[in-house]
Simulated scan of single mutants.
Amino acid sequence: MPRQVDHDERRAVIAEAAWRLIAERGVDAVTLREIAATIGMANGALKHYFPDKSSIVRTAFTSVFESTNTRIRDRLGTATGLAGLRIFCLEVMPVSPVTRLEARVVLPFWQRALADPELAAAYVAAMAYWRAQIRGFLMAARVEGSVTSAVTDDVLTEQVLAMLNGVQALAMLDPAATTPESQRRMLDAFLDGLR
């Protein structure tokens, strides 16, 4: 009797291989054939899961986004307010080997999303999710009294997103200037300014 294939598990394995190859070699250098070979799968079988490169890129981005969110949940524990926001930011910023690899997937995703409405929609949905989380941290920080800034939470949320997105580009393109240490200092200076 043929072995049953867990399609969700297979998609997850493909997504993991795709984002790691994209991070190592760049999105334009990675082919569907290479992804299939990496996981020991026939190229034709891969096309049952992902019909084209755009679907792979979208899945790689979504996989990175979900991995980041899982790490955030795991690290947060009971942290809220500014402590929670700091944990959130450090899991997005490219300050560790994993987050640097993830940033190498995110940057080419942005470039492709400019010309692909489906990829752009995936990005918009991801940022909407993060906006809600950031606002929640800020609201909790105001309740506990650790944020007293007169700047509205909507503006602060956009500043946090701009910092997170921007630092990914800076750290990937100029890592000597935007080191993990400088990123942490930038984050801490921003958070201190909210008090």
Rank of each mutant, 00 (worst) to 15 (best):
R25E: 12
F61K: 05
V167M: 15
T178V: 15
L161E: 14
Q133C: 07
E9G: 04
V105S: 09
L85C: 02
T38F: 03
V167R: 15
E181S: 04
V124I: 11
A103I: 08
A125N: 11
A42D: 08
L187N: 02
T178D: 15
A83P: 07
A120S: 13
R58Q: 05
M1P: 15
M1Y: 14
T38S: 02
T68M: 10
E158V: 14
P2E: 14
G145Q: 06
L119D: 06
E91Y: 03
L114H: 12
A115I: 09
S146G: 05
M186D: 15
A171H: 11
A171K: 07
L76Y: 07
D8T: 04
Y123W: 10
L191R: 00
V155E: 14
F50M: 06
T68Q: 11
R58K: 05
M127C: 12
R58N: 08
P108I: 00
A42C: 08
L101W: 14
L82Q: 07
D188T: 06
G145E: 08
D154P: 06
Q111I: 11
V64P: 00
E91H: 04
L21F: 04
M127Q: 12
V151H: 08
G26H: 03
T152M: 04
P180S: 02
F50Y: 10
L119Y: 04
F65D: 11
P180Y: 01
G84H: 06
T59F: 08
R142W: 09
I87K: 01
S182W: 14
R3Q: 13
M41L: 06
T38W: 01
P117N: 09
D6G: 04
A171F: 11
E102H: 14
V124N: 12
P97R: 01
I14S: 00
V124H: 13
A132M: 08
L161T: 13
G77H: 09
L101F: 14
L46R: 00
K53H: 10
A18L: 07
I22T: 07
I35Q: 00
N43S: 14
L161M: 13
A60D: 06
A132W: 08
E181P: 05
L32C: 07
R131S: 02
V95E: 03
E66S: 11
D8C: 06
S67N: 13
P108C: 03
R104T: 05
A42N: 09
T59H: 07
V98C: 14
S96Q: 10
